[in-house]
């Protein structure tokens, strides 16, 4: 449980760093060149981590399904959408919208038990927790607004 929460904290921190770094690359290089480069770096880093931790066992993959081959297209969607959003909006504002959408879709898919997820029924206390998080985010966003163009 705590390990899961710590890993989520780590992933979230790296995502915000990556967004900023990617937008810096995008200032000098085109969007598609940025996307290609970012995903290429991600591939090399994953390959290196996989080889370091599993060695030749890395190639012992289980049952591949055809759609697995196309899942990388989601990554293309992520990088291009975020780079475009960061280019048009202030970082805090852009990320606020991204996070609301992320949480909304997460709740929806958890409550449906979509794609083999453990189904987590949507209850009143889940609703309250999520509204609290969105409320906190709006307080955060609005209080920062006066500084922004």
């Amino acid at each position: 449980m705590l390990v899961g929460m710590a890993l989520a904290l780590l992933a979230g921190s790296l995502i915000s760093l990556q967004n900023i770094f990617n937008s810096k690359v995008n200032e000098r290089v085109g969007s598609w060149a940025t996307t290609t480069f970012v995903l290429g770096m991600g591939f090399l880093a994953s390959l290196l981590m996989g080889l370091l931790t599993q060695g030749s066992h890395l190639l012992e993959v289980g049952q591949m399904q055809p759609w697995f081959w196309f899942s990388g297209l989601i990554g293309v969607g992520v990088v291009t959408s975020l780079v475009q959003a960061m280019k048009r909006l202030r970082p805090t504002f852009a990320i606020s919208i991204v996070l609301t959408a992320q949480l909304g879709f997460a709740l929806w898919w958890d409550s449906m038990g979509w794609m083999g997820l453990d189904k987590i029924p949507f209850t009143v206390h889940h609703l309250f927790g999520v509204l609290m998080i969105i409320g906190g985010m709006l307080v955060f966003k609005w209080s920062g607004q006066s500084h922004r163009a």
């Binding site: 992933a11 900023i20 970012v38 090399l44 880093a45 290196l48 990554g75």
Partner: peptide, 8 residues
């Protein structure tokens, strides 16, 4: 930045 994806 792209390399962070492995850990993310």
């Amino acid at each position: 930045g792209g390399a962070f994806a492995a850990i993310i």
